[in-house]
């Protein structure tokens, strides 16, 4: 999952720095993730993991770092399994 997120980030994140060099906990907004790019990232994640983000998880915190994204995606995947 971490690799998929990093690939997407490199493709649509529009960051001025290389996504490979980012630590899992690094603040993506400080790294230059714009709100437009974060939406593109969400769309990419929805496609890659066949999930839909509920409105309650569409906030800045859910996408603040690679680790936060992993957690967000994992939460949705487990709730989809349970359903």
């Amino acid at each position: 999952m971490n690799e998929t997120i990093r690939n997407l980030l490199a493709k649509v994140g529009g960051l001025p720095v290389a996504a490979d060099g980012l630590a899992d906990e690094a603040d993506l907004y400080a790294a230059g993730l714009s709100s437009f790019a974060s939406v593109q990232l969400m769309l990419g994640l929805e496609e890659a993991f066949d999930i839909e983000f509920p409105d309650s998880l569409l906030n800045r915190k859910s996408f603040a770092s690679i680790a936060a994204i992993e957690k967000t995606v994992a939460t949705i995947l487990s709730s989809q399994k349970a359903a």
Binding site: F36, V39, M42, L43, E46
Partner: peptide
């Protein structure tokens, strides 16, 4: 423009 971007993911 921002609205249309957000509405791509917001339900």
């Amino acid at each position: 423009m921002n609205q249309s971007t957000m509405l791509l993911v917001n339900k």
